Simulated assay, not measured.
Amino acid sequence: MRSKSKPPDSSKNTLAWYTPPIWLGMTLSGWLRMLAYNRFSVDPRHIPWAVLITLTAFLGVPFNILHDLRWGGRIRRTEIEQPPLFVIGHWRSGTTWLHELLTLDESHTYPNTYQCFLPSRFLLTEHFDTHSLGFIFDAMLPKKRPFDNVEVGWTRPQEDEFALCNLGIPSPYQKIAFPRRDPCPEYFDLSGIEPERLRKWEDAFVRFLKQLTLRDPRRIVLKSPTHTFRIKTLLNLFPDAKFVHIVRDPYVTFYSTLRMWKSLYEATGLQRAGDTDDLEPYVFRNFIHMHERLDEARPLLGASRFHELRYEDLVRDPVGQMGALYGQLQLGDMERIIPNLERYLSGSADYKTNSYEIAPASREKIRQQWGHIIDRYGY
């Protein structure tokens, strides 16, 4: 299956040889478990990164201990009083953009990149690292994501699945590090794991959210495509949680997702992706699996706790679509965020998404796999 796409500015984003892997923030125990689970299958050219990750994880142990001594009791006593708001949807469907729009509301907070990079100790180290050592940390990040030119930064909203990874919790995102394997697929929807493993996942997730709440008690807005698979588990933890699901043209989503995984494998993987013939079936399979789990969860959600919108409609009329979202989920008067929203939209007016020219045969193959979902959303 082939398509033509207009790539991002490669002069700024083809930086895989020095872009630091997200795994640099892992706990030592989590890093060693991930290595062991994946049979230490680090390719020779990535061994220097593996050594550096091991060293930084080892050096981080005393800071993690000090963090727990200083903050552990307060974290345990913290209550998450505001039910979280989850942005869900398939990868490359607009979840990042919607997440950023929702964080313009001053009654909301969110996990940022630093907190997801170092979730084991950010209460202790974030201020010092991002201020006193800000110039060093800024040099560690590329200016934009390698697959879509979206700006990145330590204080920008980030996907909390990366925090779980760096806490050493099993995650299907381990595939980013080991693309020739398919680690932890059961952690997409969590339905098939043993009760003890599920409890550990829940405890780690809730503890991370308590840390965020301790830093800022406002409603937490979370975004991760993986949460689309897990709504039932999330409702067990937060019965009053709210969800907003964004969808995008599945034909574009398919090719954009392929591009994303390939870029992440290259930028932060610890082994070469090699033959990626299995990537297309992986994307086809996860898309269907995600919508199956979403459909199972829909009856559990009342009208004021679930809203659905299309990416294309959000692009066409962001103010109107955000107004409908706020009304459906009863998030309060949206008028208070319009000035922030207008400034944000003005500042990002020049952003261009990647475009894809999809051959008729390729479109037919996608329709054969996802036709019922394509028809449901009017594509």
Rank of each mutant, 00 (worst) to 15 (best):
D278A: 15
E280P: 05
E280M: 12
E280I: 09
E280V: 10
P281C: 12
Y282S: 09
V283Q: 02
V283E: 02
F284D: 08
R285C: 04
F287A: 11
I288F: 15
H289Q: 05
H289F: 10
M290F: 12
M290R: 05
M290C: 12
H291R: 15
E292L: 11
E292V: 10
E292I: 12
R293D: 05
R293Q: 12
R293K: 14
L294G: 11
D295P: 15
D295R: 15
E296C: 08
E296K: 13
A297E: 07
A297F: 10
R298Y: 15
R298Q: 11
R298M: 12
R298I: 13
P299I: 08
P299T: 08
L300A: 15
L300S: 14
G302F: 01
G302L: 03
A303L: 14
S304C: 14
R305K: 15
R305G: 05
R305N: 13
E308H: 03
L309H: 01
L309Y: 01
E312C: 10
E312Y: 08
D313K: 09
D313A: 13
L314V: 01
V315R: 08
V315I: 11
V315L: 09
V315S: 04
R316I: 11
R316E: 12
R316Q: 13
D317L: 08
P318S: 04
V319E: 11
V319H: 13
V319T: 12
V319Q: 13
V319S: 13
V319I: 12
G320Y: 03
Q321K: 08
Q321D: 04
Q321A: 04
Q321S: 06
L325R: 01
Y326I: 01
Q328L: 00
Q328A: 02
L329E: 00
G332E: 06
D333C: 04
D333P: 01
D333K: 04
